[in-house]
Structure formats: C-alpha cells, structure tokens
Design a protein around this nucleic acid. Structure first.
Lengths: 225, 225
DNA sequence: TAAATATTTTAGGCAAATCTAAATTATTTA
DNA sequence: TAAATAATTTAGATTTGCCTAAAATATTTA
C-alpha cells in the first residue's frame, strides 16, 4: 500500500497523533484537527478502510491497522528528521519549523530519508525533544515526567516541550532554558502553583504553573540529542 | 498569483523549458513531456490564461507571461538548489537527483530556499552544470559550446552535460571526466565523427560523437561551481 | 426506559485534473 | 486552391476531496 495521497497521509498522521493521547478518536476530533467536516472524514475513513490502513466499522469507531501505524510512523520519522535538519543546519528557530516540515514529510523517496538521517548523525530526538522513529518505526522512549510532578530537591534535565509556540520559545530563551538544561526544584508555592527552580546558568528563580506544565524532564542521563 | 497547485507549476515549468529550445511550443509538445493528452493541456492552458501566467489565444498558440516566467524561474531555482544539496551534502550521484528534486521544488517556503542557498554557499551552477537563478531570477550565463564545435588544439573545461542519464555518468566516471575537467581537442575523425581528446588525468584517448554531443564546455575560467 | 441530544453517515453537488471521442480550425500537399 | 491531414478544442465522463442538508444511529438524561 504505497499509493497514498498527501491528503490520505495527513489523515493517517492525524489519527495516529490523536490515538496517542485519547483512548477513542471520533470523526469530529479528526475533522477539527484537519479543519474539515465530519462528513468529509467519513468519506475518507471508507477509503482508508478499503486501503487496509484502517479498521473501520460504521457508527462503531475506527483505529489504525498495523499497516496504518507503519505509515504513520514513517511520516513522523520524516517530519522530525526534517525539523532537525531545519534547526541544526539551516538555523531555523524551533518554533518556525513545523509548517515547513508538514510539507517536507510527504516527499516520497526512501533513500533520501535514509541519507538525510545519516547526514544528520542519526539523531534520536527532534528539536522539541520528541523521539524520531528509526526506519523500522522503533523510537527511544525516555521516561518523561511533567515538571510540575517533580518532587522538591530533585534534579532532572529538560527533555521535551509541550508546545511549539513562538511565545514559549521566547520565554525559554530569556530564562536560558533549552532541551538538555538541568533543573533543580527548590520550592513549590501552592497559592498559584508557581515554583522556584535552579539551573546551571542562573541562580534560583520562579516560573509559573503554565510554564512548568509546558516542560517535560527526564531524571536519566541527559538527552542523546 | 501565489496560489498555484503542483500540477499548475509543473505545466509552467514544462512550458518554460520547451520555450528555451523550441521557438514555438505546441499543445502536443507539452502533453508529451507531461505524459498526458493534448485535451488535458488545453484545459490547463485556459486555467493558466485566466491566472495571468500565460498569454493564450485558442488555435493560435501560447507563451508564458512575464509573471509566468518569474514563477518558472523560481521553480528552476528551487529544483537546482535541491539537486546541489542532494549531490554535495547527501552524496547522491548526479543521475539520481532529478526525480527527488521534482518533488522538492514544490515546497513553498520562501525563507527555506533562501537559507538553503546560504547553507550551500550560494552555488551558481547545479551538479549538471546548469545555472541556478538567484532570488530575482537572474542567472550567470557561461558562453557554452558543444564539444563537437570546438576547434582542434583548443582547450576548455567541461561546464555542463546534455543528459542526466546513469549511462552517461557511468561512462564519464570511467573516463575520469566531470564538470570542470579540462579537455584539449587533439584530432577529429570525419569517418565516424569520433574525436581524440586529452585530459589532465589521462593521456590522449578517443570519444564517440554521441559522447561529444553530450558535453558542453566553456573556454573561459573554470566553472564557479 | 423513553425522549432529547449528540454523533455519524448518506445523498446529492461542486471543483480540479484527467480521459476518450467527436468537432473545429490550421496546415500541407497534390 | 481544394482536399487531405494534422493540431487543437469541445463535450461529456471519471476520480479525488470537499461541502451542506437530511437521515440514521448512539448516547445522555429526565
């Protein structure tokens, strides 16, 4: 099943991402993500079902087949490798690359993506800290926790961000926090759920609950990025 | 006029290339190049005419407008920069990059292509020796002549190839000829139009008329590639 | 559990890009 | 120049992807 249109690929990718967070994925969820209507989604579900990438029973629900998951992982791989390329080689900001990678991820050549992977040094995580699947769809799972869930006194390194917005990047840049930065929790304030933290570059300072929620850390060795 | 589909872009590019060599371009020429039918071409000509990229009068003929030429040069620029990237950074062969660049040339981001250009060191010629237009559509013109037209005794350097086939690359590799190689014409044989040439790497050897026809040289300073 | 509400699907249509077959216009050639 | 041939265009279908409005099914809630 190698004859998928860009549109079909986008549906598959969207369903994949929704399946990661939600237990059930609805027609409306997909429509919302793709800026389209539920009726259009139903049309596509029928097509993807005949193409074997989806298990679909009408009125009952749907999910990606094994085939479909492979397709999705391949697109995710391409997306994240291109994002890495854009940030590391072309000096784009972390917040600028998503839209471009949405286009690049549909370039079909298999050998291209393998060479790109080598050229980049086989990175395991993209600029946002998300894992890059290998050519078999396997990816490294870092045991990540949200910064708000870290106990006081513990030290961990930032491994991913929960948003790709320019606003978040601006704030992180100003506070000297990036993927890989070591953070120690000094204090938590229950009044507004703000917390005091420490980093190698700065002495103690306070961050908001909103910011803490947008940061994911791992207690293990620093990111292989 | 920035809302062009990939298909529309491909028509524009095809018409551009045909206009470079042929004085008049026919519906059938375009159909042949795009593996489609004359009727489909007519449909598209009408669309491109309303989109102002084409001057078209039915049954009379058509040619790109100034607008259309700009669009074409932008696509050519992207195509050739990506080819340069694939060969120089990802170690692809010269003969493998065309199909991939056909896809990459439709990526829309303007800033992407400017950064790619800088990353590559603003190359002026692609791996086949074809000039890369700058962001204004200007390109360096090397006074190129076909190898068969060079006088005996003259020395020049290979600046472009007339085909992108694997077969040609194989032959050139075997004979140690690449873009930039200095060639001196020693003798021409009128029987079969073969010619004896000399390069820095090899002493005199003979090449066929077919090969000579596929090589373009410039008497000026070596390519800025 | 029956009625109200929400979700999903069908029916019928539209635009892009393509096709084949037929009609129209241009060009060649006898 | 008139007839034959070639090129181009139109007419009418097809497929993909999308839409709105209405019908069918599921889920909530009274």
């Amino acid at each position: 099943m190698e004859n998928l249109s860009t549109t079909e690929e986008n549906y598959i990718k969207t369903i994949y991402h929704l399946q990661q967070t939600d237990t059930t994925v609805s027609t409306n969820d997909v429509a919302a993500k793709l800026n389209t209507k539920a009726a259009s989604v139903t049309d596509m579900l029928k097509r993807l079902n005949t193409k074997q990438v989806l298990n679909y029973e009408k009125y009952k629900g749907f999910s990606l087949s094994n085939q479909g998951e492979k397709v999705a992982l391949d697109i995710v791989r391409k997306h994240r490798l291109w994002e890495y390329f854009l940030v590391e080689k072309l000096a784009f900001g972390w917040d600028e690359v998503h839209a471009i990678a949405e286009e690049l991820e549909h370039i079909t050549s298999k050998v291209l993506i393998e060479r790109l992977d080598n050229f980049l040094g086989n990175p395991k995580f993209d600029p946002h800290g998300d894992p890059i699947p290998d050519s078999n769809g396997k990816m490294q799972t870092q045991p990540q926790i949200n910064l708000v869930d870290m106990p006081i006194g513990e030290t961990a390194s930032v491994s991913a961000v929960g948003s790709q917005s320019t606003e978040l990047l601006e704030l992180l840049t100003h506070k000297n926090i990036a993927i890989g930065t070591q953070i120690t929790i000094k204090k938590k304030f229950s009044f507004d759920h703000s917390m005091e933290i420490e980093t190698p570059a700065n002495s103690s300072f306070t961050i908001s609950r909103e910011l803490a929620l947008a940061l994911f850390v791992t207690i293990k060795t620093p990111s292989l990025l």
